[in-house]
Simulated scan of single mutants.
Amino acid sequence: MQMGRHLGFLLVFISLFIGLAVADWNILNRKKKNELGSSLKNYCESWRINVELNNIRGFDVVPQECIDFIGKYMTSTQYKVDSERALEECTLYLSSCCTFKGDGKDAWIFDVDDTLLSLVPYYKKHHFGGEKLNMTSLEAWMRESKAPALQHTMKLFHEIKSSGLKIFLISSRRECLRTHTVDNLIKVGYHGWTNLILRELEDENVQVQNYKANARKRLVDEGYRIWGIIGDQWSSVEGLPTAKRTFKLPNCLYHVS
Protein backbone atom coordinates (compact mmCIF):
# COMPACT_ATOMS: atom_id res chain seq x y z
CA MET A 1 0.00 0.00 0.00
CA GLN A 2 2.79 2.39 1.01
CA MET A 3 4.68 1.52 -2.16
CA GLY A 4 1.52 2.33 -4.14
CA ARG A 5 1.28 5.75 -2.50
CA HIS A 6 4.92 6.49 -3.31
CA LEU A 7 4.41 5.37 -6.89
CA GLY A 8 1.25 7.51 -7.21
CA PHE A 9 3.08 10.54 -5.81
CA LEU A 10 5.98 9.95 -8.19
CA LEU A 11 3.65 9.77 -11.18
CA VAL A 12 1.89 13.02 -10.15
CA PHE A 13 5.28 14.73 -9.70
CA ILE A 14 6.51 13.53 -13.10
CA SER A 15 3.28 14.65 -14.78
CA LEU A 16 3.55 18.08 -13.16
CA PHE A 17 7.19 18.42 -14.18
CA ILE A 18 6.44 17.41 -17.76
CA GLY A 19 3.51 19.82 -17.86
CA LEU A 20 5.71 22.69 -16.69
CA ALA A 21 8.43 21.72 -19.14
CA VAL A 22 5.96 21.67 -22.02
CA ALA A 23 4.54 25.01 -20.91
CA ASP A 24 8.03 26.53 -20.74
CA TRP A 25 8.88 25.09 -24.16
CA ASN A 26 5.72 26.58 -25.62
CA ILE A 27 6.54 29.96 -24.10
CA LEU A 28 10.01 29.81 -25.58
CA ASN A 29 8.58 28.88 -28.95
CA ARG A 30 6.16 31.79 -28.84
CA LYS A 31 8.95 34.11 -27.80
CA LYS A 32 11.09 32.82 -30.64
CA LYS A 33 8.27 33.28 -33.10
CA ASN A 34 7.67 36.86 -31.93
CA GLU A 35 11.35 37.71 -32.30
CA LEU A 36 11.87 35.86 -35.58
CA GLY A 37 11.54 38.95 -37.75
CA SER A 38 14.25 40.96 -36.04
CA SER A 39 16.49 37.91 -35.49
CA LEU A 40 16.28 36.92 -39.14
CA LYS A 41 16.96 40.48 -40.26
CA ASN A 42 20.01 40.62 -38.01
CA TYR A 43 21.26 37.29 -39.33
CA CYS A 44 20.82 38.32 -42.98
CA GLU A 45 22.42 41.71 -42.42
CA SER A 46 25.36 39.96 -40.74
CA TRP A 47 25.60 37.54 -43.68
CA ARG A 48 25.58 40.45 -46.15
CA ILE A 49 28.25 42.40 -44.26
CA ASN A 50 30.51 39.34 -44.05
CA VAL A 51 30.18 38.83 -47.79
CA GLU A 52 31.36 42.42 -48.28
CA LEU A 53 34.23 41.86 -45.82
CA ASN A 54 35.27 38.79 -47.84
CA ASN A 55 34.80 36.54 -44.81
CA ILE A 56 32.07 34.57 -46.62
CA ARG A 57 33.39 33.32 -49.95
CA GLY A 58 32.56 30.83 -52.64
CA PHE A 59 28.82 30.64 -51.94
CA ASP A 60 26.68 29.26 -54.77
CA VAL A 61 23.40 30.80 -53.63
CA VAL A 62 22.11 33.39 -51.21
CA PRO A 63 20.65 31.63 -48.12
CA GLN A 64 16.98 30.91 -48.79
CA GLU A 65 15.84 32.71 -45.65
CA CYS A 66 17.71 35.87 -46.76
CA ILE A 67 16.50 36.17 -50.36
CA ASP A 68 13.86 38.81 -49.59
CA PHE A 69 16.28 40.78 -47.44
CA ILE A 70 19.03 40.74 -50.08
CA GLY A 71 16.56 41.66 -52.82
CA LYS A 72 15.29 44.62 -50.82
CA TYR A 73 18.83 45.82 -50.12
CA MET A 74 20.03 45.55 -53.74
CA THR A 75 17.03 47.59 -54.94
CA SER A 76 17.08 50.07 -52.06
CA THR A 77 18.23 53.63 -51.53
CA GLN A 78 20.75 52.25 -49.04
CA TYR A 79 22.51 50.25 -51.77
CA LYS A 80 22.76 53.41 -53.89
CA VAL A 81 24.02 55.45 -50.94
CA ASP A 82 26.61 52.78 -50.07
CA SER A 83 27.84 52.78 -53.66
CA GLU A 84 27.91 56.56 -53.88
CA ARG A 85 29.89 56.76 -50.63
CA ALA A 86 32.52 54.40 -52.02
CA LEU A 87 32.81 56.48 -55.17
CA GLU A 88 33.06 59.70 -53.19
CA GLU A 89 36.21 58.20 -51.70
CA CYS A 90 37.51 57.69 -55.25
CA THR A 91 36.92 61.37 -55.99
CA LEU A 92 38.68 62.44 -52.79
CA TYR A 93 41.60 60.16 -53.57
CA LEU A 94 41.95 61.53 -57.10
CA SER A 95 41.81 65.11 -55.88
CA SER A 96 44.93 64.78 -53.76
CA CYS A 97 46.83 61.59 -54.49
CA CYS A 98 48.19 61.79 -57.93
CA THR A 99 50.56 63.75 -60.09
CA PHE A 100 49.90 62.55 -63.60
CA LYS A 101 52.83 62.69 -66.02
CA GLY A 102 50.66 63.34 -69.05
CA ASP A 103 52.54 60.80 -71.14
CA GLY A 104 49.50 58.65 -71.84
CA LYS A 105 50.54 55.97 -69.34
CA ASP A 106 48.39 56.99 -66.36
CA ALA A 107 45.59 54.41 -66.10
CA TRP A 108 42.46 53.45 -64.21
CA ILE A 109 40.65 50.09 -64.28
CA PHE A 110 36.92 49.42 -64.05
CA ASP A 111 35.15 46.09 -63.77
CA VAL A 112 31.98 45.89 -65.91
CA ASP A 113 29.20 43.85 -64.30
CA ASP A 114 27.66 45.53 -61.25
CA THR A 115 30.30 48.22 -61.55
CA LEU A 116 29.42 49.94 -64.83
CA LEU A 117 26.39 47.85 -65.81
CA SER A 118 23.82 46.44 -63.39
CA LEU A 119 22.89 42.75 -63.39
CA VAL A 120 20.22 43.36 -60.75
CA PRO A 121 17.35 43.14 -63.32
CA TYR A 122 18.54 39.64 -64.26
CA TYR A 123 18.93 38.51 -60.66
CA LYS A 124 15.52 39.96 -59.79
CA LYS A 125 14.03 37.38 -62.15
CA HIS A 126 16.07 34.64 -60.48
CA HIS A 127 15.24 35.14 -56.80
CA PHE A 128 18.06 37.61 -56.09
CA GLY A 129 20.78 34.98 -56.00
CA GLY A 130 18.59 32.31 -54.43
CA GLU A 131 18.98 30.15 -57.55
CA LYS A 132 22.28 28.58 -58.52
CA LEU A 133 23.71 30.56 -61.42
CA ASN A 134 22.93 29.26 -64.89
CA MET A 135 25.68 30.79 -67.03
CA THR A 136 23.88 29.95 -70.29
CA SER A 137 20.84 31.87 -69.09
CA LEU A 138 22.91 34.82 -67.86
CA GLU A 139 24.88 35.08 -71.11
CA ALA A 140 21.65 34.93 -73.13
CA TRP A 141 20.44 37.92 -71.09
CA MET A 142 23.76 39.73 -71.63
CA ARG A 143 23.35 39.28 -75.40
CA GLU A 144 20.20 41.38 -75.21
CA SER A 145 22.43 44.36 -74.23
CA LYS A 146 19.75 45.69 -71.88
CA ALA A 147 21.71 46.00 -68.64
CA PRO A 148 21.17 49.51 -67.22
CA ALA A 149 24.04 51.76 -66.24
CA LEU A 150 24.97 52.30 -62.62
CA GLN A 151 24.56 56.07 -62.70
CA HIS A 152 26.79 56.73 -59.70
CA THR A 153 29.67 54.99 -61.49
CA MET A 154 29.01 56.63 -64.85
CA LYS A 155 29.57 60.09 -63.40
CA LEU A 156 32.94 59.04 -61.99
CA PHE A 157 33.85 57.23 -65.22
CA HIS A 158 33.50 60.46 -67.21
CA GLU A 159 35.33 62.50 -64.55
CA ILE A 160 38.28 60.10 -64.72
CA LYS A 161 38.24 60.13 -68.51
CA SER A 162 38.23 63.93 -68.60
CA SER A 163 41.24 64.01 -66.26
CA GLY A 164 43.33 62.40 -69.01
CA LEU A 165 43.69 58.91 -67.55
CA LYS A 166 43.44 55.93 -69.86
CA ILE A 167 40.51 53.74 -68.85
CA PHE A 168 40.74 49.97 -69.13
CA LEU A 169 37.73 47.72 -68.61
CA ILE A 170 38.68 44.25 -67.36
CA SER A 171 35.68 41.94 -67.27
CA SER A 172 35.20 38.25 -66.56
CA ARG A 173 32.77 38.12 -69.49
CA ARG A 174 33.86 35.87 -72.36
CA GLU A 175 35.28 37.22 -75.60
CA CYS A 176 32.23 35.95 -77.51
CA LEU A 177 30.18 38.64 -75.72
CA ARG A 178 32.32 41.54 -76.95
CA THR A 179 29.89 43.00 -79.49
CA HIS A 180 26.94 42.76 -77.08
CA THR A 181 28.97 44.27 -74.22
CA VAL A 182 30.23 47.19 -76.31
CA ASP A 183 26.72 47.84 -77.64
CA ASN A 184 25.32 47.82 -74.11
CA LEU A 185 28.01 50.14 -72.73
CA ILE A 186 27.62 52.68 -75.54
CA LYS A 187 23.83 52.51 -75.45
CA VAL A 188 23.69 53.55 -71.78
CA GLY A 189 26.32 56.29 -72.08
CA TYR A 190 29.82 54.88 -71.63
CA HIS A 191 32.40 55.73 -74.28
CA GLY A 192 36.04 56.63 -74.65
CA TRP A 193 37.70 53.73 -72.86
CA THR A 194 41.10 52.63 -74.13
CA ASN A 195 40.53 48.87 -74.13
CA LEU A 196 37.92 46.32 -73.08
CA ILE A 197 39.64 43.12 -71.92
CA LEU A 198 37.51 39.97 -71.97
CA ARG A 199 38.32 36.32 -71.29
CA GLU A 200 39.86 34.49 -74.20
CA LEU A 201 39.48 30.72 -74.62
CA GLU A 202 42.77 30.11 -72.80
CA ASP A 203 41.50 32.16 -69.83
CA GLU A 204 38.26 30.29 -69.29
CA ASN A 205 39.74 27.73 -66.88
CA VAL A 206 41.79 30.33 -65.00
CA GLN A 207 40.44 31.70 -61.71
CA VAL A 208 39.01 35.18 -62.22
CA GLN A 209 41.40 36.73 -59.71
CA ASN A 210 44.41 35.30 -61.54
CA TYR A 211 43.02 36.23 -64.96
CA LYS A 212 42.52 39.85 -63.89
CA ALA A 213 45.92 40.04 -62.19
CA ASN A 214 47.52 38.70 -65.40
CA ALA A 215 45.69 41.36 -67.41
CA ARG A 216 47.02 44.06 -65.08
CA LYS A 217 50.54 42.66 -65.39
CA ARG A 218 50.37 43.04 -69.16
CA LEU A 219 49.38 46.68 -68.71
CA VAL A 220 52.22 47.30 -66.26
CA ASP A 221 54.64 45.59 -68.63
CA GLU A 222 53.48 48.05 -71.29
CA GLY A 223 54.46 50.90 -68.99
CA TYR A 224 51.06 51.86 -67.57
CA ARG A 225 50.81 53.25 -64.04
CA ILE A 226 47.57 51.93 -62.52
CA TRP A 227 46.27 54.55 -60.11
CA GLY A 228 43.05 52.82 -59.16
CA ILE A 229 40.66 49.92 -59.61
CA ILE A 230 36.91 49.88 -59.02
CA GLY A 231 35.03 46.59 -58.87
CA ASP A 232 32.21 44.86 -57.03
CA GLN A 233 34.15 41.62 -56.38
CA TRP A 234 37.30 41.09 -54.35
CA SER A 235 38.66 39.08 -57.26
CA SER A 236 38.67 42.30 -59.30
CA VAL A 237 41.06 44.09 -56.94
CA GLU A 238 43.21 41.37 -55.33
CA GLY A 239 46.38 39.82 -56.69
CA LEU A 240 49.60 41.33 -58.01
CA PRO A 241 50.28 43.69 -59.56
CA THR A 242 47.55 45.82 -58.07
CA ALA A 243 46.76 49.53 -58.18
CA LYS A 244 47.94 52.27 -55.86
CA ARG A 245 44.39 52.27 -54.46
CA THR A 246 41.42 49.92 -54.86
CA PHE A 247 37.72 50.52 -54.26
CA LYS A 248 35.07 47.84 -53.66
CA LEU A 249 31.41 48.45 -54.52
CA PRO A 250 28.72 46.53 -52.61
CA ASN A 251 27.33 43.33 -54.12
CA CYS A 252 25.93 40.43 -52.10
CA LEU A 253 24.08 38.66 -54.94
CA TYR A 254 26.96 36.37 -55.98
CA HIS A 255 30.63 35.65 -55.40
CA VAL A 256 33.28 35.42 -58.14
CA SER A 257 36.64 34.01 -57.07
Rank of each mutant, 00 (worst) to 15 (best):
G164K: 03
G164S: 05
L165R: 03
K166R: 14
K166P: 09
I167D: 01
F168Y: 14
F168T: 12
F168Q: 09
L169S: 06
I170W: 01
I170N: 06
S171T: 14
R174G: 12
C176N: 12
C176K: 07
L177N: 07
R178C: 05
T179F: 06
H180A: 15
D183R: 02
L185M: 15
L185K: 01
I186F: 03
K187N: 14
K187W: 08
V188W: 11
V188T: 14
V188R: 02
G189D: 06
G189L: 07
G189F: 13
H191F: 12
H191N: 10
G192A: 03
G192V: 09
G192T: 05
G192F: 11
W193I: 04
T194A: 14
T194W: 04
T194F: 11
N195G: 03
N195V: 01
L196F: 10
L196R: 06
I197S: 09
L198V: 07
R199L: 15
R199Y: 12
E200K: 09
L201Q: 09
E204H: 03
E204R: 04
E204Q: 08
Q207W: 10
Q207L: 13
V208G: 00
Q209M: 04
N210K: 08
Y211T: 02
Y211P: 01
Y211I: 03
K212H: 06
A213C: 05
N214V: 01
N214I: 00
A215F: 07
A215Q: 09
R216D: 09
R216G: 10
R218D: 10
E222N: 03
E222D: 11
G223Q: 09
I226W: 01
I226T: 00
W227Y: 15
W227I: 11
G228R: 06
G228H: 10
I229G: 02
I229R: 00
I229S: 03
I230A: 07
I230N: 02
G231Y: 11
G231H: 08
D232R: 03
Q233R: 06
S236T: 11
S236V: 05
V237W: 04
V237K: 01
E238V: 09
G239A: 07
G239M: 04
L240E: 14
L240P: 01
L240K: 03
P241E: 11
P241S: 08
P241V: 10
P241H: 06
R245I: 14
R245E: 15
T246W: 02
F247V: 13
F247G: 08
F247R: 06
K248F: 07
K248T: 08
L249M: 13
L249V: 08
P250I: 09
P250Q: 05
